[in-house]
């Protein structure tokens, strides 16, 4: 880990557990991690972002820090007013653009109600939109804001091209890696202290074997996340994004069930700190492309490459 990354992680590990508000995060510079130094940011890479988002996941940070990083990093030569309001990310867009005006609806926008500006993906064109004309408030399964934003003839600036669903998937993968690792920590601590049948649960072989599976899933998710960040830094992650999101979703499916199972009833209570991880993890499976979406994408890439070509692609990308 570079010295800069180690410092960023240490700062995040100190700040994120204090439930900072948006301004505190912005003051610490985290939203500008991926913005170039020339444009006033940190000039960090995707590996730096991945490390910070892991901390966000592991501390159940209730702020859209990843969405903001991406929304600030992707526009080409856009000037973001540092007005203290959130930049938001909209991957699901229905509407029309004509003569730099947008009319339509942005669905499932995390923290959309608080956004000062929104980066929206309109069939691969990235549009910079102002705060919405009308907001229909909603929430994720974990209780975080997920709003529908309505626009009528709003000013829209095309600031480049990209796929926000893919970048959002990266954010969720990295957060998931941190959150599942944190759920594993809680599970290990719980079975070491909870006594049943006259001994800690950790002494029961059935519990040991279950936690070994949870640890393996957390390991697979952590590796998928780190390898995805490396591919992004290598310049093209069109294969790695679907692969990592699919593996993350599998790890969540298997891992969350075990984390809850070994906790018993206490893990199902509002006061116990497991659900801030597991409820988010379960919701993130749907965010920015579910299994069906990314499996179709990756399966199509594989079939297009052919059986031998798939192996050639995987190794060529790994050798970069």
């Amino acid at each position: 880990m570079s010295e800069m990354r180690a410092q960023l992680v240490a700062t995040a590990e100190a700040l994120f557990p204090t439930a900072p508000d948006w301004l505190a995060l912005a003051d610490a510079g985290f939203p500008f991690l991926l913005v170039s130094e020339r444009q006033g940011g940190f000039g960090g890479d995707w590996g730096d972002a991945e490390a910070i988002l892991r901390v966000a996941g592991a501390t159940a940070l209730a702020q859209p820090i990843g969405e903001a990083m991406v929304a600030l990093a992707l526009p080409e030569n856009a000037r973001w007013p540092h007005d203290g309001r959130l930049p938001a990310l909209a991957a699901q867009v229905e509407g029309v653009v004509s003569a730099d005006r947008f009319t339509g609806v942005l669905a499932a926008v995390p923290w959309g109600r608080a956004a000062g500006q929104v980066l929206a993906d309109c069939n691969g064109r990235l549009l910079l939109l102002p705060a919405a004309d009308h907001v229909a408030e909603g929430s994720s399964p974990a209780g975080e804001p997920r709003d529908t934003l309505h626009y009528a003839d709003a000013p829209a600036q095309c600031v480049g091209h990209g796929e926000l669903k893919a970048m959002g998937a990266f954010v969720r993968v990295a957060q998931s890696a941190g959150a599942l690792a944190a759920a594993l920590d809680l599970a290990v601590a719980h079975v070491n202290t909870r006594v049943q049948f006259g001994k800690p649960l950790a002494r029961l072989q059935a519990v040991q074997q279950a936690l070994a599976v949870l640890a393996s899933e957390a390991a697979a998710l952590g590796m998928a996340s780190a390898a995805l960040a490396r591919a992004l830094d290598a310049g093209d992650a069109s294969f790695e994004i679907p692969a990592a999101k699919l593996r993350a979703n599998l790890a969540i499916t298997r891992g969350v069930a075990i984390a809850h199972q070994v906790h018993g009833a206490i893990g199902f209570t509002r006061d116990y700190p497991l659900h801030p991880f597991t409820r988010r993890l379960m919701g993130w499976r749907s965010d920015f492309g579910n299994d069906a979406f990314w499996a179709d994408r990756l399966g199509t890439l594989a079939v297009t490459a052919g059986g031998a070509g798939l192996w050639a692609d995987i190794t060529r990308r790994g050798d970069r």
Partner: peptide, 26 residues
């Protein structure tokens, strides 16, 4: 993969398995 053609169900299974293959290799 060489037999899947445009069958969407087979493609989805291939996608799932490819994701695991890639992760395990890493």
């Amino acid at each position: 993969i060489d037999a899947a053609g445009d069958n969407p169900v087979l493609r989805a299974t291939i996608g799932q398995l490819t994701a695991e293959l890639w992760t395990l290799r890493q």
